[in-house]
């Protein structure tokens, strides 16, 4: 059974935000206006942290894309009272939107604050309504959402592979953020499969997980930034 995971090379990340945009359109994440956004209700499955170092004019910025870490030991799925969020056998932490009662306990329990809530009915500008991804359901208000590692793409890839009568290979299933990344900073694949790039990269001496000391065993690894002389 594959264990899907991601590696993000911070050396290559330019902080362009393409992954954020790709994610938002791929997963039909609702758009909230500036007013709601100012209240802290922006909905993002993929976010980018920007760290500023030093004082003007010697300022340095660092960027860090942040999807859901799809922990192997997720604190969020433990507390769900209705089985609306769970970790499937391939390690993906998924959310069943029609099952979610909107208690937000998973959101509160996540140490990485990656889950978010539909505070109001989702709305899209008229021009964008026909651009919604037909493979992904549009969520109603009152449920918790999260990054799914584009699990619908996995289903599609499985069907494609079955038609072509071959095994699932690296590159058949890639989330939208990884696909779009213009600098190739993001890698995706089976962490346990030696043929996949992520398997090798996660063992790099630069590799780290965010807050590994919590014991959540995230399946997103980062390759730390190195100074280039």
């Amino acid at each position: 059974m594959p264990r899907w995971g991601m590696v993000i090379d911070l050396n290559k990340c330019t902080g362009c935000g393409a992954c954020v945009v790709a994610c938002k359109t791929e997963l039909n994440v609702a758009i909230v206006g500036p007013e709601e956004s100012g209240k802290g209700r922006t909905m993002l499955c993929m976010d980018i942290f920007t760290f500023y170092e030093g004082e003007f004019p010697n300022v340095k910025t660092r960027h860090m894309p942040r999807p859901c870490f799809h922990c192997d030991n997720p604190p969020c799925t433990k507390v769900c009272p209705v089985r609306a969020t769970y970790r499937n056998e391939e390690g993906l932490v998924t959310q069943i939107y029609p099952q979610c009662i909107g208690c937000r306990y998973c959101q509160v329990a996540c140490p990485y604050t990656v889950k978010f809530f539909n505070w109001s009915k989702p709305e899209w500008p008229k021009e964008m309504r026909k651009a919604l991804n037909p493979d992904v359901s549009v969520r109603p208000d009152g449920v918790v959402e999260k990054c799914t590692f584009c699990v619908h793409r996995l289903q599609k890839a499985r069907e494609q592979v079955a038609v072509e009568n071959r095994e699932l290979e690296e590159g058949d299933y890639v989330p939208a953020c990884v696909e779009i990344c213009p600098t190739g900073a993001m890698y995706f694949g089976d962490l346990d499969n030696a043929k996949h790039a992520v398997n090798k990269l996660k063992r790099s001496h630069r590799a780290f997980q965010v807050m590994e000391d919590l014991g959540t065993e995230p399946k997103v690894y980062y390759l730390s930034e190195m100074e280039i002389e």
């Binding site: 209705v82 979610c100 009662i101 909107g102 208690c103 937000r104 809530f117 009152g142 918790v144």
Partner: peptide, 8 residues
């Protein structure tokens, strides 16, 4: 507090 009280 529920977002979806209909699914209680």
């Amino acid at each position: 507090d529920l977002g979806r009280p209909d699914r209680m």
